[in-house]
Write a protein that binds this DNA or RNA. Sequence first.
DNA 1: CTAAATATGTGACATATATCACAAAGCTAT
DNA 2: ATAGCTTTGTGATATATGTCACATATTTAG
Lengths: 197, 197
Amino acid sequence: MNLGYFYLYLVYPILRTHIENVLPLTDAEFEFIASKFRPKKFSKKQFLFRQGDDVPYVYFVASGLIMLTFDDEQGKQHVVSFAMEDWWESDYFAFFSKTKATMSLQCLEETEVLCISLEDYQTLCAGSHKIEHFFLEKANRGHIASQQRILSFITSSAKDRYERLLKRYPALFQRVPKTLLASYLGVSRETLSRFNS
Amino acid sequence: MNLGYFYLYLVYPILRTHIENVLPLTDAEFEFIASKFRPKKFSKKQFLFRQGDDVPYVYFVASGLIMLTFDDEQGKQHVVSFAMEDWWESDYFAFFSKTKATMSLQCLEETEVLCISLEDYQTLCAGSHKIEHFFLEKANRGHIASQQRILSFITSSAKDRYERLLKRYPALFQRVPKTLLASYLGVSRETLSRFNS
DNA sequence: CTAAATATGTGACATATATCACAAAGCTAT
DNA sequence: ATAGCTTTGTGATATATGTCACATATTTAG
């Protein structure tokens, strides 16, 4: 299979650049990796999967914006995380344990992803020390980022969390309705609105 | 080197059992792994490292109990996590990026650990596909656990978080002062005390 | 272009939690 | 056994945030 094939889809070079930020790859290595990823395109509001579904893939977001949400017993929706260009997302627990999703993954904009199944993920890791190392690196960074977010819940008021988010990801405030940002921050929409005054 | 050497320290079999919960190992493989870990013992209140120090190791807790804490600008201490028998802990960001610790790691009881340096960690991963896979598995589970905890901050009141913690880790309430549990839950000591009535 | 749906801002009030102060109980080291 | 430190509980009060209600602005679909 010719490497050129993958470049018909603009998403593949984005993945390659993303991986090579962590470690360099030969063309052959990338071709092997790319052969395990499938491109998919979703429209705004479409679900990649819903609570209760199987979780067939881990997703690499090449363009667009998606959110991971959890619906509680009272039917209230909570935003667990956003994922934009260059981020990985899934319900990792359900994906790895082959259980049903406890969360939903939904598009906030038209979004292009590259996705990989558990089987292909395992084949890839077994066949390439490098890519396994890359995924370890990503998992560690994800873990660290989560710990930072936990710390912000323990140490900061909602207003402080809001201001830090605004500073770090100003673009989010243009792209995401305030109701969802409020949910992500763990406050009511009304309280978040009042932070502006 | 004889495998028996490692078994002079009771901590090594604990590590082996722990790893074999994820994947089986031959004696030779475990010997290689064990050769990279050093046993250390700390007394109650002793610091494994403090905010501002280098973070020389990742720690596997064989016995005892430690906590990861963060001191904010006002000098207030916050508990980020507890780690008891069979858990891994460190300031992972500082460890991997070789920067100074943003958190402290301190013993709540006399504690025995096995620790590994970044250099040995990398040697281990480069030399054993299996152990790299094991660490990937751990990192993923850590990431998942953190996400669960974030979810509990977004969706639940302090009282609910308290009750869930009590149910899941009843032993903690015997082993850890309430002030520290309150900090871990992100509430004041007084509020936590009132949950009992 | 229009109607409906969605998103946002704000007042009034309820509730959860923090803070401060103090006393009692339990540990710890000599 | 004693003095001092740490831990815990609880009242009074302050503050942050949630909830409900409604008006207005903005976006979306036909």
